[in-house]
Design a protein around this nucleic acid. Structure first.
Lengths: 345, 345
DNA sequence: CTCTGCTCCGCAAACGATTGTAGTATCGTA
DNA sequence: TACGATACTACAATCGTTTGCGGAGCAGAG
């Protein structure tokens, strides 16, 4: 078994003490070592293919060069880009990413966070819902850097990177209004989740902003961000207000549920009733009709979260918890069109 | 700053030497320590909330209790379930999962693997393509346990967990044949990828098995597992053989490309031409028409990979590299139907 | 009464790095 | 020549555990 080459080996090869070798190899301390011994050590390290032992280093320096990412549900395609974005910038700085799946369960998220803290991660990126306050508190006690992504917490005490839901809903509402829609409904996500509530409020505010009547009755809440609840809510909404010609979905899946609701009423999506989604998950462009959706830059979101975390870890600790909202864009497809002409049916 | 409680603290609290405390807390060595001192140590540990320091332990025992997962492309929704499945069983055994994204680039995959080896992961789960032989070789030199998932390597020297493509294609072909289709085409993935080639061969073999003519001209290869190449290949195939009434897609996205090709020719999916997908990615059931697809148990695949890895790490090293094929199932939806009746059009 | 064997626990050396401190040349200057 | 400053480098402690080894205490056998 080829034993790993240690710093001692390098030192011996270069004919210096191990501490000198350490200093030579560390960019921060290499200034204090003579130029040609430095060269000698570097050569020896290169020759022996020396790789520092992260555990030994971490034990001494109290840093693991790893960050934990807690994902509420890895199977949700939404989080792929977030992970990829974060990973790509963290790797560049030499960090490794520990992934933790909460499987949709807040208690499980707590356990995952605890396990990561046990492992001495240098930082945490949390994509989990708001109800992990305990875990967040515990993490803060341990003075672990933290960034929230995609979801945020009420008091803003932890920096968070989220999509600008207000702006995103604005894009959808403005788009529909400019097409000529007068009665626009909203199928909202559960209001116990920040995104559900936020988008609902944004919807009402924008409806007013474009000069329409902000009738709370035009909003129907779905139990959960899924197709089936979206279907039920959409159906209810359309039954209650048959005059609705457009629906802003709180989510792509909710919007897809609305597709079904519209068809159930023998109407046509994108003709009788326009629909917009939110998030722009893959394959939306292949739906019939292709769905117009607010696109949230998830990969960038992950990258930004990682960058923020790095900054926070580098700082002495008194960094201002800068929360960032990323502005979404609108992917216009064929599920939205001018309302049917009522004058000559 | 509340300093972490160390084993020394526990030992002092219990009035024993640190080594005794260590033995008491370790289930494997606790037999050698007296029952009531053991109790005392356990009580002290509990009282102080002692958590062993993984770095210190790992440094001594040469184990990090972490495994690396290398994913070719985290943004591909396919890998979510694999990750989730693996994570769930690894966590139960106290392992953490290090995620590495190769971003579709084999060279990047090598770098990721190297970085993980530097970090002394105890095992590797590789979902990357076949061309990482160098990295695999290097890993084997380091005597790191390894399992391949979703893709396999030619010589079978590394245990792999893959879907049974032969059986899966069989499900699709048998289903179509039993509906009465006589001329069935196949839009294959690139043959340089094992799944592309394997499914193509399986297709021809099954066509013969159900008593149809295995005409290689009924297979059209797409450049890549994406919608657009699938569209082009499907169009080419249908132009060449207008008698085709069913297409077996090498992939869900290829099959979706075929949807478009069929429509381009003014035909109707699930009426004039039946289509089957492969993998059963999310949202296929919401397509128009809902797509019949071979469903691969990805979550189970991840879990199985993790279990195999655990077994391999536990063994002394001379475990038989048992490769496992998971049998898929068929989700029948409305993109497949009996062929149009040619006698009375 | 001594010797052997057993059980339990403490001592100290690792594991591989980082880092404060002390020591030794070397040089310049008086 | 001697002395102080400067520039490197070696020594050794340390991070928190694990673990081989030896020693203390005690009981039973001869």
């Amino acid at each position: 078994m080829t034993d790993r080459t240690t710093l001692k080996d390098v030192a011996k090869e270069a004919g210096v003490h191990v501490s000198t070798a350490s200093r030579a190899l560390n960019p921060l301390t290499s200034a204090v070592v003579n130029t040609d011994t430095l060269e000698r050590v570097a050569a020896a390290a290169r020759k022996l293919g020396y790789r520092p032992h992260p555990l030994a280093r971490g034990l001494r320096t109290n840093r693991t060069m790893s960050v934990g990412m807690v994902i509420p549900d890895v199977e949700n395609p939404l989080f792929g880009p977030i992970i990829a974005g974060a990973e790509s910038v963290l790797v560049d700085d030499g960090y490794s990413v520990l992934i933790g799946n909460a499987d949709g369960d807040p208690a499980s998220a707590d356990a995952v966070i605890a396990s990561m803290l046990d492992r001495h991660v240098d930082g945490l990126i949390l994509a989990t819902a708001a109800r992990t306050d305990v875990a967040i508190e515990r993490a803060r006690e341990r003075r672990v850097s933290m960034v929230l992504v995609n979801r945020t917490i009420e008091d803003g005490s932890v920096p968070s990177i989220v999509g600008d839901d207000h702006a995103g809903i604005g894009l959808a509402v403005q788009h529909l209004a400019s097409l000529g829609h007068q009665r626009i409904g909203h199928v909202a996500g559960p209001s116990k989740v920040s995104t559900g509530l936020g988008r609902r409020q944004a919807f009402l505010s924008w409806i007013q902003a474009v000069g329409l009547e902000a009738d709370p009755d035009l909003v129907e809440e779905a139990d959960w961000f899924q197709v089936e609840p979206g279907f039920r809510a959409g159906l209810e909404l359309l039954r209650r207000h048959s005059e609705i010609t457009a629906i802003v979905g709180g989510n792509d899946l909710l919007a897809l549920g609305c597709y079904r609701a519209i068809r159930t009423l023998d109407l046509e999506v994108g003709v009788d009733v326009s629909v917009t989604g939110y998030n722009d998950i893959p394959l939306l462009d292949l739906m019939q009709p292709a769905m117009t959706a607010v696109r949230v830059p998830y990969r960038q979101m992950g990258a930004q979260a990682a960058a923020t975390l790095l900054a926070q870890m580098a700082d002495t600790g008194d960094a201002p918890p800068a929360s960032i909202k990323l502005t979404p864009s609108l992917a216009v497809r064929s599920s939205t069109a001018p309302p049917p002409d009522q004058t000559n049916p």
